[in-house]
Write a protein that binds this DNA or RNA. Structure first.
Length: 622
RNA sequence: GGUUGUGUAGCUCAAUUGGAUAGAGCAUCUGACUACGAAUCAGAAGGUUUAAGGUUCGACUCCUUACACGACCA
């Protein structure tokens, strides 16, 4: 990974120093404790703790304490056993460091208990900054293009696209949260043989049908003809094979395939009729995509079209030939030799001069760099393209492009169904629009059954059902680490209880209800400076709140929304524990009540912001 | 065949990048709504982390080999 080598990284981001515009309070507490540990080590052992051993980790739930130092690595340098070291450091801290209220040593682990006053200080520091303040994330690039979605215009979006869209959107938002300048780009694959297939089928069987006349979304209508092509084509192949033609020959020589190829050539030759049909059908598809994108809540700053970049790609191929890094074979086709890079020879331009996928990728990369001068260009693409992306990067490097090293493939695993892999040609896909519709229906049924939104206006209720459905779906797809394959079981996978989006949404609805009630009862605000002691669940909540910057920074470094989803879940969980254990509105002590209200409101905001990074909205009631 | 990814509780996923008794949710069982929303909380049960070696204070994590599944490249 090449994070941080780009020139646009700010000085603060590089040094890791956290300054006011950035959100970083827990780091200061951690740093204070680390400094104290260093002082203790000097005082007790006359030595420094090496930087590699100075990492504090959150203490596990089953032990007392908040931060833990692992003392095993110190045994050699200090010439003492791990327990001895822990005990000695702990005792020194307890008597000399007011931040440390107590400690315990379990084997090689020194667990530090932080004084309540310190948590209260931390809470004040947190509240002094808006929850939306950018997060200090050393090593994360500053100018980023995130390319995602990148659909083909011959069929509607399916479940696999949803994972892609949610990942891309979320990664972009997470990077933005670190203060990076992010462009969301969508490279539309609007040309090629697959497009001609649906065009050809439409010409044959369409009889002038339009989305309006058929009452079907444009992308679905076009997809219908794509499937129709495949069906007739397979029939032709079967017939040829029955006549004794070899299977691979039959596939190439079936009349429909030959016609589709001819159509592609006509398109490249700007044949008026073909281009007209192409424009018409692509227009339908874009209308359909727009609706879907809007419905699932993703957006783009910039659209690229392969029809507009493949010529630029051909220029790059020419450039490579002139530089002598590409070569031409006897049949006229152009190749690049990447064997030195551990890859293979790769075709860049066919013998007939037509482009292949990678031709247009070369053009698009160039164009993106011209437009945005990124230090990092992220491609959200399924892992079946791993090899292709390596080839692309290596080829750009051969061309000596400065941006080659900035390319990063965010590779994600396929979404499997219980019945196996989705295949659009065979119709075994989960259609995105249909899935969302089903989810909304389920959310509606579940919510109405709960009976908690009686009297809510219909429009508002419909929006709520949509918010809940998308929350469940997005959370489900984003909580899994991207590179892992995942299983989607339509009946069982989507829950509204447990480790889900709606669990977190519900937590926020409770918080919002507390907010409403405190308004009604005039219990708002107030100073809580007089509070000196905290309930265990309160301290825990503060620690979770303060962990937000670290979670965002890590998510940005790893391009892993799953880290954010885990964070939001932990925070909601901690709040629900707090909620079950201590009264908020019913607390008699005015200062304590004020503190709990402030804490509650902040948790709500933090949940809203965190879920926002996943593209999930949180409702006020549900 | 070559390259590469994955393999953790019945199921779906975690594990702060080498740290404690491997954690959550679903499903199963038990308890809690006249303090603020039970889509919640508290608890029980569920594991030889695919297998066998190795590295070390310490391995789901790193190394070697094998097995299973997937993807890509001929």
């Amino acid at each position: 990974m090449r994070w941080g080598e780009g020139s646009g990284v700010s000085a603060d981001a590089v040094t890791g120093v956290c300054r006011p515009p950035y959100l970083c309070p827990v780091q200061t507490l951690e740093n204070d404790l680390k400094n104290a540990l260093q002082t203790a080590a000097q005082a007790v052992f006359g030595q420094d703790i090496p930087a590699s051993a100075l990492a504090l980790q959150p203490t596990r739930k089953e032990f007392a304490g908040s931060f833990t130092l692992v003392t095993f690595p110190l045994t050699k340098a200090f010439g003492k056993g791990p327990e001895q070291i822990g005990q000695a450091l702990g005792e020194w801290l307890k008597t000399n460091e007011p931040r440390v209220r107590g400690f315990n040593v379990v084997k090689g682990f020194l667990n530090l208990e932080v004084a309540d006053a310190e948590w209260l200080k931390l809470l004040h520091a947190l509240l002094a900054q808006p929850a939306t303040a950018p997060v200090n994330a050393p090593g994360v690039p500053r100018r980023v293009v995130v390319e995602y979605s990148s659909p083909n215009t011959n069929k509607p979006l399916h479940l696999g696209h949803l994972r892609n869209n949610f990942l891309g959107y979320s990664v972009a938002e997470i990077l933005k949260a670190t203060g990076a300048t992010v462009t969301k780009a969508n490279l539309v694959n609007d040309r090629g043989i697959h497009i001609c297939k649906s065009m050809l089928a439409y010409q044959r069987f369409g009889q002038g049908e339009t989305p309006a006349s058929a009452g079907i979304k444009g992308d679905h209508l076009t997809g219908k003809y794509y499937v129709l092509f495949e069906r007739h084509y397979r029939e032709e192949v079967r017939q040829l094979e029955a006549e004794g033609v070899a299977p691979d020959v039959a596939k190439r020589k079936a009349p429909l395939m030959l016609e589709a190829q001819q159509m592609l050539q006509q398109w490249e030759a700007h044949d008026e009729a073909v281009v007209g049909l192409w424009k018409q059908m692509n227009g339908w598809v874009y209308e359909g995509f727009d609706q879907t994108y809007k419905n699932i809540g993703v957006d783009f700053d910039k659209f690229y079209y392969e029809s507009g970049t493949y010529l630029l790609g051909k220029e790059r191929v020419e450039e490579g030939l002139q530089k002598g890094v590409f070569f031409r074979k006897d049949d006229g086709s152009v190749w690049v030799d990447l064997q030195a890079e551990g890859l293979d020879e790769k075709l860049l331009l066919r013998a007939d001069g037509t482009s292949v996928y990678i031709t247009q990728d070369l053009g698009t990369a160039e164009l993106k760099y011209q437009d945005f001068g990124y230090d990092s260009s992220i491609y959200v693409i399924a892992d079946e393209q791993n090899y292709h992306m390596q080839v692309l990067q290596a080829t750009l490097a051969k061309l000596g492009k400065p941006y080659a090293a900035a390319i990063h493939h965010l590779s994600y695993g396929m979404v499997d169904l219980p019945s196996g892999k989705m295949k659009s040609r065979e119709g075994t896909v989960v259609d995105a629009d249909e899935l969302v519709r089903d989810m909304v229906a389920t959310a509606k049924a579940t919510t109405l059954e709960m009976g908690k939104i009686d009297g809510m206006p219909e429009a508002e209720a419909d929006e709520l059902f949509h918010t809940l459905a998308m929350g469940a779906l997005k959370y489900f797809l984003l909580k899994v680490e991207p590179k892992k394959r995942m299983l989607f079981n339509p009946e069982e996978s989507i829950n509204f209880q447990g480790h889900t989006g709606p669990f977190i949404q519900y937590t926020n609805a409770r918080i919002a209800a507390l907010g409403r009630k405190s308004q009604e009862q005039n219990l708002t605000g107030g100073d809580f400076g007089s509070v000196t002691e905290l309930h265990e669940t309160e301290a825990e909540l503060i620690q979770h709140l303060a962990a937000y910057p670290a979670a965002v920074a890590e998510a940005a470094r790893q391009l892993a929304p799953s880290i954010i989803s885990q964070y939001a879940y932990d925070l909601a969980k901690a709040f629900n524990r707090f909620y079950a254990e201590v009264p908020v509105l019913a607390e008699d002590n005015v200062a304590k009540r004020a503190l709990r209200l402030a804490l509650t409101a902040r948790v709500g905001e933090q949940l809203r912001v965190s879920m926002g990074l996943l593209g999930i909205r949180v409702p006020e009631r549900m």
